[in-house]
């Protein structure tokens, strides 16, 4: 593939999803300091803020990625295209990943300016893992059901389940580190998303 074509694909996919992913995520990050308090937090409380609040950006950043093709009548158009749709899905996930990492780093910078003390780079990676877990859960549900609202609902329910101490401890990556189960879950769900992404278009 020529570089120009690749850049065109990247640009058009970014423009397609920026309003429904980046804008709500940025809005959410602006709301977090109002309700949670992000100044002068120690390492433990910073971890709690990152995995309970910042991780929520996983919902707008990942869940609606397949929505443009879930409208009625798109299946024929997508199927007839020579360029594999799975690669488009992987590209969108990668773009969202990069933007999510940037948002997390920006918010951590804001927390550090506010006097919080925590290992920024380590927590950034762990927060990204938690965010991806939340987002991938919803994205997988969206891909399987062909309905983005189902994805949001599943992500939200997953978030509520993680608040239960006994269950959520394994996935509290920022406080407890990234476990092997989380890595397996992310890999598995990522592969499943790509597999079902084509089926979600056909289902719509």
């Amino acid at each position: 593939m020529e570089t120009g074509n690749l850049l065109t694909i990247i640009g058009s996919n970014f423009r397609l999803n920026v309003k429904r992913t980046l804008f709500p995520a940025i809005l959410l990050l602006f709301v977090i300091p109002l309700i949670y308090g992000t100044s002068s937090l120690d390492s433990m409380k910073s971890a709690d803020c990152l995995e309970r609040m910042v991780a929520l950006i996983g919902l707008p950043m990942f869940v609606p990625l397949l929505m443009p093709e879930q409208g009625g009548g798109m299946d024929a158009i997508v199927t007839l295209r020579p360029f594999p749709y799975r690669i488009i899905a992987a590209l969108r996930i990668t773009l969202s990943l990069v933007c999510t990492a940037a948002l997390i780093l920006a918010f951590e910078g804001y927390m550090r300016i506010g006097g919080c003390t925590f290992p920024a780079s380590v927590f950034a990676l762990r927060t990204l893992a938690v965010t991806m877990t939340l987002g991938f859960a919803g994205l997988l549900a969206s891909a399987v059901s062909g309905n983005t609202a189902v994805g949001f609902l599943v992500s939200f329910c997953w978030y509520c389940v993680l608040q239960v101490e006994s269950i959520g401890a394994v996935f509290k990556s920022v406080s407890n580190g990234i476990s092997i189960y989380q890595v397996l879950l992310l890999s598995g769900s990522g592969a499943a998303i790509l597999f079902f992404s084509v089926k979600s278009v056909r289902k719509s």
Binding site: V31, I35, L56, A149, F152, F156
Partner: peptide, 15 residues
């Protein structure tokens, strides 16, 4: 005519 209501009510749930 989109899913903005979900994010909007989600914010309301948070606050």
């Amino acid at each position: 005519e989109n899913h903005t209501a979900i994010l909007f009510t989600g914010l309301i749930w948070l606050v």
